[in-house]
């Protein structure tokens, strides 16, 4: 092989490696940025669809959503989600009656245990849905939370 041919071939190889590398980087970048459209969505089903690409949630007793039945202060509602499911990719918390149903999302690495806790705001009484993605399926559990404002029993 002469020098010119060698250079040409190696450039081609480098080029193809780079394009493969670029291709594999792009989806990660899209994934890594804050999902504005999912957070902006005002409808529960559309919001679920914008996160997963579909809205097929399978109710499962393996998803455990711990939250109060009655929360006196809608500004601070403690939410805990844990699951017995394996290989959990993400946990999402949706509040049906909030202006934007998606409240928060948690992407877990293989080091993480599938359990999270946080505190969210709720404008009024609503169904709260915890969704867990494991494998290619999304499992969920939901709970009605009643908000009483100022302790008047609303």
């Amino acid at each position: 092989m002469n020098r010119r041919k060698f250079l040409k071939n190696s450039l081609l190889t480098v080029g193809s490696i780079m394009s493969v590398a670029t291709l594999s980087i792009i989806p990660k970048r899209v994934f890594a940025s804050w999902p504005k459209s999912s957070f902006d969505e005002k409808d529960l089903e559309k919001s679920i669809k914008s996160v997963y690409g579909h809205s097929d949630l399978t109710e499962s007793s393996k998803v455990i959503l711990k939250a109060p039945e009655i929360a006196e202060n809608g500004a601070i509602v403690p939410i805990n989600v844990k699951t017995k499911l394996k290989r959990v990719e993400s946990i999402m918390v949706f509040v049906e009656n909030n202006p934007q149903p998606l409240s928060s999302g948690y992407y877990l690495s293989s080091l993480a245990e599938p359990t999270i806790g946080t505190r969210i705001k709720m404008g009024k009484s609503s169904k709260v849905i915890a969704a867990v993605k494991s494998g290619n399926k999304v499992y969920s559990s939901s709970k009605e939370i009643k908000i009483t404002i100022g302790g008047c029993g609303g």
């Binding site: 890594a32 804050w34 999902p35 957070f39 500004a75 601070i76 509602v77 403690p78 805990n80 509040v95 909030n98 934007q100 998606l102 409240s103 928060s104 999302g105 948690y106 992407y107 877990l108 690495s109 080091l111 993480a112 245990e113 359990t115 999270i116 806790g117 946080t118 505190r119 969210i120 705001k121 709720m122």
Partner: peptide, 28 residues
């Protein structure tokens, strides 16, 4: 992160409470 490795990545919207609280667990 734990020892420089990512454990969890959290996305929050405006519906997370003021002075937010977060808890998670990992193998460590």
């Amino acid at each position: 992160q734990a020892n420089g490795k990512e454990v969890i990545k959290v996305y929050w919207g405006p519906a997370v409470s003021k002075n937010p609280y977060l808890t998670f667990k990992y193998k460590g």
